[in-house]
Design a protein around this nucleic acid. Structure first.
Lengths: 136, 136
DNA sequence: GTGTTTGCAAAGTGTTTGCAATTTA
DNA sequence: TAAATTGCAAACACTTTGCAAACAC
């Protein structure tokens, strides 16, 4: 239940962020071996459960700082909550509305073909594909 | 500036909705000849500008009723606001974050290839493609 | 020490809800 | 007149912000 934050200070410094207790704790929760999708509320609850008190406002601020630093990627699939994805590479998502489950789809081999040219003075910043799932 | 609601009562009845003054006014604004993307706030403002008073709560309720009735389609591109699209057919979107502009991409010719099988007990309900744009 | 970060509580935004009054059929 | 619909204001969920106290370097 106790967090191992020993490697997090270095990761934070490399990202240009001061290694505070709160940031290290959240980083330790986020940057485990496997890819994670979290909401601010959920991460806050996890931190509390791990015995690290971090205010919800700080969780929000930290998630945004991590996103700006390129450690996280924000995902919009549902108007009511914001997800943060530890997979910052090029990929898409499966999304199951009933339980809010989010699963990465690596973009190897997947492609969107036949897209028209972007309008007038615009360029494509990113193409997001969300595959919405229902229980069978 | 005055709305022509003469054809709306019939449209609403066909959709199984009672043709009230408010619904007819909103329908007249929405179901013009061209495809529209509106937020509740924006539609509310339009109705006021056209001299039809409809409360914001009723605009929200009506947009959801129209969506359930298959007259509209809800689009999630931005966590902060919900868009409603009068194009209910199979299509995707260009989205420009800077001004919230939303443009349909008809799905003729466009395809997402190489999608993996959906996980365990799920089936694909819909595939949403959002092409995020930036000013060039 | 000095500038950064945190926590709290308050404010904000977009949306939903409870309920009495009104409207539709 | 019975049932559906509306408007208002209050409630809501999620997120952001202001500012004094705490912390990092």
């Amino acid at each position: 239940m106790t967090l191992d934050c020993s490697r997090e200070a270095e990761r934070l410094r490399r990202a240009g962020l001061r290694p505070t207790r709160q940031r290290a704790a959240l980083a330790a929760l986020l940057f485990t071996d496997c890819v994670r999708h979290v909401t601010a509320e959920a991460l806050h609850a996890e931190a509390e459960a791990a015995g690290e008190h971090v205010s919800l406002a700080t969780v929000y601020n930290t998630l945004h700082q991590f996103t700006e630093a390129g450690l996280l990627r924000q995902v919009t699939v549902d108007g009511t909550r914001t997800y943060f994805d530890t997979n910052t590479g090029d990929h898409h998502h499966f999304y199951r509305e009933e339980d809010g489950m989010l699963v990465d789809i690596e973009s190897d081999g997947i492609a969107v073909v036949g897209l028209p040219e972007p309008p007038d003075g615009s360029r494509v910043e990113r193409v997001d594909v969300v595959v919405r799932l229902r229980k069978r």
